[in-house]
Computed example of a mutant assay.
Amino acid sequence: MSVATYGPVSDLKYLNWSKHPITFSKANQWSDILYLGCFPLILDPIIKDVHFQKVLIDGASTLNILFAGSLEELGLKKEDLTPMDSSFWGIIPRKASLPLGHIILSVKFGTAKHFYVDYINFLVTDFNTAYHAIVGRLVLAKFMVVLHYMYLVLKMPIEQGVLSLLANLDVAYNYEKESFALVEVIPLEDLEIPTLEATRASTKSREFKEVVLVPGDQSKTARIGANLDPEDALVSFLREHVDVFAWKPMDMLGVLRELIKHSLNVSATAKPIKQKLRRFTIDKKEAIRVEITRLLATGFIKEVYHLDWLANPVLIALKEED
């Protein structure tokens, strides 16, 4: 995966209420916390129109999860969900979970006077845990949330200033015990680390042989494994579909731009840089000339003029078997 980086932007659009600085100090320590970082950050937001007491704020999760019991408390049914067929991991040890579906619900953090409300897309599971729901990292970023796990405090900017939400240490302790109790009832074999299988010896043969796909035309051949069994079925299949092969660049008709197109995601403010001219030996120059001539003839490339942005050709030696 490539990440585009940009320089300073002249017309930068700031996020809502980012003018309010968020800081932490000893004034945020609202309790004597003996085991720093050992307890989860649990808050009590209003989801849709129900005040839930056990919502886990998980900055390490990329998912927002609503558990089966919470769906019932909201008065919703499976028919209200949008179906999905992708599974996720991380809740049940060593097992994938297939959601019942997903649903977008309003979530309100704060008090009647000072609050922030927005919409969250929840995955809905068919099982329960010690929590009503889990709010993950993507939503925390959307809300511009800053967490402090030592103080068990969550802060986010709102129109009036900074909203500070304190977790309940007793609640966090009790629900953590409940989570451990749920883990203890999971069969032991589900918690064991699976043993690695012995490395299998490669069954691939590096021996090849050429077969003629068009009888009488020795230029139209294909390489297949020398030890294939049965061989006749593959050769017959290739000969039956010989029209799909491109024997020379001119046979390749290209791909419609409506289907796929490559582009360079370069900032309009970036200044192109001309590479230093690279010198090639005579044999490499000839290889470059032959290849460029072929590509020009087939219409794969065309000549253009960039006075400020030039890149040297790069030669890559292919292995014989490639």
Results as ranks from 00 to 15, higher is better:
96 A>E: 08
158 I>Y: 10
102 H>C: 05
234 L>T: 12
304 V>W: 05
263 S>P: 04
272 P>N: 07
236 S>P: 03
90 G>P: 03
30 W>F: 11
275 Q>E: 15
90 G>I: 02
206 R>G: 08
106 S>H: 08
205 S>N: 02
23 T>H: 15
278 R>K: 15
145 V>E: 02
313 P>L: 01
234 L>H: 04
63 L>W: 00
211 V>C: 01
120 I>T: 09
213 L>P: 06
76 L>C: 01
247 W>C: 04
14 Y>G: 01
294 R>C: 04
262 H>T: 08
139 V>P: 01
253 L>F: 09
239 R>Q: 15
209 K>E: 11
187 P>D: 02
144 M>N: 14
81 L>M: 01
117 V>Q: 15
143 F>R: 03
143 F>N: 02
183 V>F: 08
212 V>P: 08
182 L>H: 06
318 L>I: 07
319 K>S: 07
10 S>D: 09
113 K>C: 07
122 F>Y: 05
82 T>P: 00
273 I>W: 09
74 L>E: 03
185 V>K: 11
11 D>V: 04
207 E>L: 14
218 Q>D: 14
251 D>N: 12
285 K>F: 00
201 A>S: 08
126 D>H: 13
126 D>N: 14
301 I>S: 10
54 K>T: 07
164 S>W: 02
234 L>A: 11
136 G>Q: 00
311 A>K: 13
87 S>D: 10
169 L>M: 15
247 W>L: 05
211 V>K: 06
304 V>S: 13
253 L>Q: 14
122 F>S: 02
83 P>N: 02
217 D>M: 03
243 D>R: 07
118 D>H: 08
88 F>W: 01
71 L>R: 01
235 V>K: 04
140 L>Y: 06
99 P>F: 00
138 L>T: 07
